[in-house]
Amino acid sequence: MKRPGALPGLLAALATTLVMLLLRVVLGVPLPFELVSDRFLPFVPVEGFVTGLGVFGGALLAKQIGFYGSFLGQLLIGVALGGLFVRLLSRGRGAGAAPLTRRAIVVTFGAAAAVWLVTVVVLWPALRSNYGGLPPERAALLSAAGLLVLLGVFAASLLGAYAALRERERS
């Protein structure tokens, strides 16, 4: 019997990427890549910063690699997490079993909520930016809400894609 494999993870990552891009283009909510670099780049000493840019062929090329690479990286992380999720959920369950249990749903959304909380705490100073010009306090709330939406979309679409594929398998 075949399992859905990494497909639910890929679909979830694609759905999350789409929502993330919509938030960035329409509301100016920073991409996770922008938040992470704004949070941590200031801690890189200037000599290391300049050397690092040189390794990537200069600032412009480094930015382009970061821009496109972040989307690719996001898909790869989604696939990896999806694969792990399917493996955990399929363990010891027959082909006829219901695709999802209440426990699986609670654990998945719980994990998403936990990741959100950690992310907000770690990235907090960077959340105050907004590329549409929202004042800092409102920007921070919007960025935090945006991250919650993204993790929620990832969890929901992961569960949904997995359930749909397993349902097909049972039919």
């Binding site: 639910p8 789409l18 283009v25 097909r168």
Partner: peptide, 28 residues
């Protein structure tokens, strides 16, 4: 039956994934 169901499911998932990728590509 389950193999066919899964294949059909993968096709639908692939189409959905393609649509999502296309829309994301446009926004990128």
């Amino acid at each position: 039956m389950s193999e066919r169901g899964l294949t059909r499911g993968r096709f639908v998932a692939g189409a959905a994934g393609g649509a999502l990728a296309l829309a994301s590509g446009g926004l990128i």
